[in-house]
Simulated scan of single mutants.
Amino acid sequence: MAKNILLTGGTGFIGKHLTDLLISNGFEVSILSRSDRKNTSSITYYKWDLTRNYIDEEAILKADYIIHLSGEGIVEKRWTKKRKKEILESRTQPIDLIFSVLKKTNKKLDAFISASAVGIYGAYTNQNICTENTTPANDFLGITCQEWEKAVDQINTLGIRTVKVRTGIVLGKDEGFLKKVVPSFKAGFGSILGTGKQYVPWIHIEDLCNIYLKAIVDEKMSGPYNSCVTDNTTNASLSRILAQLFGYKIWLPKAPAFVLKIVLGEMSVAVLEGQRVSSEKIQKMGFDFQFTDLESALISCLN
């Protein structure tokens, strides 16, 4: 019988691509949804409601693997105290709920695989290359990711293999990061943000989904893995390549950091700072990135 993969966040950007990949590799897919959805020939939907601490337990009992992708967008709204709480709880509460069902039913999964983020290393810019052993930061992003991963550790105490996929900027056609920035570049108004020296750890959506697939099938994988290309991409180099692909050189002055801080508030650190991140650990597990050249990756997303 085909193994069943249960997804949270299965209808989002990453979830949709991952669902297609899993189905094409012969897995059954179930998705937890807050709204009523009709099952298809390849996807079964189950209801959950975090506001009522409710989940259809059949979804958990049927699953062989659970992949946790759900969470409020980091840069969708200003970081008010309320918004920060929403960002954190949208990542940890689903895991707490799943943990309670697993513990109550004594259900043994083959693995629990969760998204995490390279934000665990903090919103800083320096020349250091962060590995999975780098000390987590104490800023908002760092603390959020630490709490996120601590929630995953609960699952591990049940004797279930856990994997944490620390993701950077995800590149995909008409979605995610590029959906936000391409319109201005396409219109000829692309610009560099702040100094432009902040690093941009990135990964193509196809590579990211294949990392999740590897985390399922490779029983040796456990713990955190940085999931982005190790290179020297900065906001300036990314911006210049994007402009070049649309046929021009950046002519606008750099967007001043102080203006972005006024407009975005504390959230501005998410675009004004960034660290280099090592992918050596996942590569040593035998994973080969299909997209390691930024320009080629962008072209594949823009065509």
Rank of each mutant, 00 (worst) to 15 (best):
A297Y: 01
T92P: 06
V163M: 02
T162A: 10
N133H: 11
S30D: 04
I55F: 05
Q244K: 12
N303V: 10
R37W: 01
F246I: 10
I87F: 03
T80E: 07
E280W: 02
E89Q: 15
C130E: 03
K173D: 06
S116F: 11
G188S: 08
K186A: 10
E273G: 03
E295I: 03
T144S: 12
L97E: 01
S300Y: 07
R276G: 07
L298P: 12
N210L: 06
Q283F: 00
I192M: 12
M267Q: 12
G274S: 14
F287W: 06
S278E: 10
Y45S: 07
N25A: 10
N232Q: 14
P183V: 02
T162R: 03
S222A: 11
Y45A: 09
I66R: 01
V217G: 10
V170C: 07
V229E: 05
R240T: 14
S191N: 14
I205P: 01
A236I: 05
M221D: 12
W148K: 08
F99E: 00
N39C: 13
I23T: 05
F289D: 13
L178N: 03
R78Y: 05
K164I: 03
I55C: 02
K81Y: 07
F291P: 01
I203T: 06
L97P: 00
S100N: 12
S41N: 15
L97G: 03
W148D: 07
V29E: 04
E132Y: 10
L22W: 10
A270N: 05
S70E: 12
G122E: 00
Q154Y: 13
S90A: 11
S70N: 11
L102Q: 00
I299S: 08
P136Q: 13
V170Y: 02
K179F: 08
P224A: 09
E266N: 09
L50R: 15
G168F: 00
K261E: 06
E132I: 11
H204T: 09
K254D: 12
V75A: 15
C228W: 00
T167K: 01
I143N: 02
R78F: 04
I192K: 06
K108V: 07
F140C: 02
Y212C: 05
A115E: 10
K77G: 09
C145I: 08
T92G: 13
E266M: 12
G71H: 09
T125S: 15
T292I: 14
W148T: 06
D231Y: 01
S24T: 11
I155Q: 07
R91V: 05
W148M: 13
G9H: 02
L102M: 08
K179G: 02
G190W: 00
D56M: 07
D153P: 00
W251Q: 11
N226E: 14
A111F: 12
G9V: 00
R52I: 12
T292M: 14
N138P: 02
G142Y: 01
L69S: 01
K38A: 15
E295K: 15
